[in-house]
Simulated scan of single mutants.
Amino acid sequence: MKIKKYLAYDMKEACQLIRQDLGPDAVIINTKQVRQKGILGFIKARMVEVTAAVDEVSVEAPSTKEVKETLSDDDKVSREMQEMKELLQQIIFKEQKATDGTIPVKVSDYEEFDAAEEFRRILEDLDLLPEVEKKIQDAFLKNELDQCKSRNDIKDKLAEKLADFFIPVTQANQKSNVLAFIGPTGVGKTTTIAKLAANFALYHGLNIALITIDTYRIGAVAQLKTYGDIIGVTVEAVMTPLELKETVKNHKHCDLILVDTAGRSSKNFEQITELKTFLDAIRPLEVYLVLDVNTKNKDLISIVDKYSVLKYSKLVFTKADETYSLGSILNVVDATELPVAYVTNGQNVPDDIIPGEPAGLAKLIIEEVE
């Protein structure tokens, strides 16, 4: 067995030297960073020292039974030499693993980790809008990606960066105890309200009132009242803006008033205008725009634009359990510059709802990237 050490500026160069000298069957058994002394004793840049080994004679190994039955004396000598080489390689392997925990790698199988390419793939998996992707790329310092040695390293660093993209929900930006939930049809507004009502009432002991103006959808009022009965919360249904105003006034003693609304298409300006008359009747209030994370990016941007006349101040994302890419959250946050209040990830009430804490949101988004 031939064992040699090679000095190079990086692993790519080292592997090229090893292939040229020992061939593609060489095995890397040790790597370490070193610094060489230059002229007048000055220290040169950090380099990599790689120890590699290769069998000088390659002999195909037959089975033990075949050796006993068919090998000539010369063949037996060759076989014994081969076994000695294999034994030596095993000893080197065990010693190397015992000293630093690394496992020898065949040089032909070695691929240098390309952090920039892996970073590009992760961003591609997030399905980001070009301008959002550019902002994330710009958030990385020049040498930060070079310090990442694995895909997980990049994901951890990316999670740190993404947390800075989110605005935390604080008392300062929560200006009313009346919360109205708006959004397109089928995004899960009623279920989200039920989860919040259950959490606030059962876990925080708050006095909650539920009001619905969704008298269009068949079974909508009954659905909310069913939740209300289970939670032990009052549910009121109203038909006009004046009724809504009076009902909110009648429950002003409550800690929190949650208002459910009918789903409205962002293309139907008349319906959105009608909804605005209801919300204007009970201002000041907090308006939460509820969005399905599975919606196409183009449609999401259109929805947040068309719904802006309703002066929403918080975002809620639903159905996070139904997708492998949560990059749409980043796209909407970038477009609106508003905080994410909650993300829901299932149908269970009162569970499957996550507060919009920046670090938690960033981790949730990155965890979905395989």
Rank of each mutant, 00 (worst) to 15 (best):
L315Q: 03
A341Y: 06
G346M: 08
K225M: 07
V343W: 13
L206A: 04
Q20P: 00
Q33W: 13
A8H: 08
L242P: 00
K249Y: 06
L361V: 06
V187A: 03
A220Y: 10
R283F: 04
A115E: 02
K149W: 02
A362N: 10
V316H: 07
D153Q: 01
F166L: 10
D156C: 06
H251Q: 03
N250V: 01
F317V: 05
V77Q: 05
E370L: 13
L206H: 12
T212R: 06
L123G: 01
K195H: 13
C148A: 15
L300Y: 08
V178K: 07
L291Y: 11
D164P: 00
L123F: 05
L275Q: 09
G38C: 06
N143I: 06
K298I: 08
V235P: 03
L202I: 15
Q271L: 10
T51H: 04
I39L: 15
I211P: 03
Y288W: 14
Q223R: 06
Q174K: 05
L179P: 00
N348M: 12
V34F: 05
Y342M: 14
N331C: 06
A139T: 05
I365N: 10
L224G: 05
N177L: 09
L361R: 12
T261P: 13
D214M: 02
A159N: 01
A237F: 06
V67Q: 08
S63I: 01
I29L: 15
Q96S: 07
E83I: 11
E274D: 09
N207V: 00
T226W: 02
Q147V: 02
D125G: 01
V343K: 08
L126H: 09
T70N: 11
I213W: 01
A341W: 09
I39E: 11
A180C: 13
F42R: 13
K267E: 12
I365T: 04
A362F: 13
I211A: 05
D55A: 08
V332L: 01
G186P: 14
M81S: 03
P241K: 07
A222K: 14
L40C: 00
V293Y: 14
K276C: 03
E286W: 10
K135V: 06
D292I: 06
S328N: 15
G356W: 05
A52T: 03
V340L: 11
H204R: 15
I329T: 12
L88Q: 09
T99W: 12
E13R: 02
A116W: 00
D321H: 04
D21I: 08
I28K: 07
H204L: 08
A197S: 12
P350F: 13
V369W: 14
I365Y: 09
Y307F: 15
Y288V: 15
K225P: 01
